[in-house]
């Protein structure tokens, strides 16, 4: 047998460095994962005769347990395997091997407890959302999906091509765009790790519409996120300027007239009224050059007293 064979100690052929070392105190990860220990697992056969070495079963057990521990698993079954193989002739340093195993199992249990502790800590620190907040999270997610599906969002490169006079291509483009965003002169939304720029904020010249920066600034001041600003801008919500139809008088039609009769006559009276006003996207108001209507709608959203009502 090769004198340097790693199983020497376990078989008692030579001093048992592994068992002694493992049994001498709590083992550390670096101890277990050291190349010399790992190599030992593959050395269960005599390299000359090809025969399985006496005591190789202990190497198997320790090896399996070590592998489990290194994978972050509990070394389950190792002790059972140990017991089952009692029929194998005892080796002189079995006690050392048991201690080594126990150390490994203790280490495994400690790792397991540590894992549980980490999970418990993480759960304790995780945001606890109630049903209302979950509903709102869902609403916001649905809106974001709608925007991604329906609203053209330009990449940084595409925007730079559209705004060559304001943003020079190259290394400074990101910094320039960040400056524009920070000054509320450009609306950008984060999509994963990238910035995207809604096309609807641009006019025919490729510039951000002049009426928008005050809206962006006031919306940010009030606490709206860029995605919320974009949803307001892009989703239908602004009523057109059709007058409200007020209630009209119905002539009496006899004492026996019922509620249902009145309802029928009211419906008939309004049958030829113009339909209820459609809702339009604020961005469409800008595109149609209806800037005052846009400002009116922005003021309804952000408050009548905000600067968005001032002609820009």
């Amino acid at each position: 047998m090769n004198a340097s064979h790693p199983t020497e100690g376990i078989d008692g052929v030579a001093p048992a460095p592994a068992g002694d070392r493992l049994a001498s105190g709590p083992v550390t990860v670096s101890d277990i994962s050291s190349p010399s220990v790992l190599q030992r697992h593959d050395a269960r056969y005599d390299p000359d005769s090809g025969q399985r070495l006496p005591g190789a079963w202990i190497v198997d057990i320790v090896g399996h347990a070590t592998d489990d521990v290194l994978r972050g698993l509990r070394a389950r079954g190792a002790s059972e395997l140990f017991e089952r193989d009692r029929t194998v002739p005892m080796v002189p340093d079995r006690e050392s091997a048991e201690r080594a195993l126990r150390t490994l199992l203790d280490f495994s249990a400690a790792r397991e407890r540590e894992g549980y502790d980490r999970v418990v800590d993480a759960l304790g620190e995780a945001p606890a959302l109630d049903g209302n907040q979950l509903h709102q999270a869902q609403e916001h997610a649905v809106r974001k999906c709608w925007l991604i599906d329906h609203e053209p969002l330009l990449s940084t490169e595409e925007l730079v091509r559209l705004m060559p006079d304001r943003v020079a291509a190259g290394g400074n483009a990101s910094r320039t765009l960040q400056g524009l965003r920070d000054r509320d002169e450009l609306l950008g939304v984060r999509l994963m790790r990238d910035w995207r720029y809604p096309a609807c904020q641009l006019d025919a010249r490729g510039e951000v519409h002049v009426a928008l920066p005050p809206v962006f600034a006031e919306a940010r001041r009030q606490g709206y996120t860029p995605w919320e600003v974009l949803f307001w801008l892009a989703a239908p919500g602004a009523p057109t300027s059709m007058p409200i139809v007020a209630g009209r008088p119905l002539e009496p039609a006899g004492e026996s007239e019922t509620l249902e009769d009145i309802a029928r006559r009211a419906v008939a009276l309004h049958e030829n009224d113009p339909p209820a006003p459609d809702l339009v996207r604020p961005a469409s108001l800008l595109a149609a050059n209806e800037t005052e209507a846009f400002r009116h709608h922005a003021a309804r959203w952000l408050g009548e007293r905000t600067s968005v009502t001032r002609p820009g």
Partner: peptide, 16 residues
Amino acid sequence: REACPALRTLARTLHE
């Protein structure tokens, strides 16, 4: 909201 004009007329009629 398409029903609102008729309901306003109903309210006005009952009020009167």
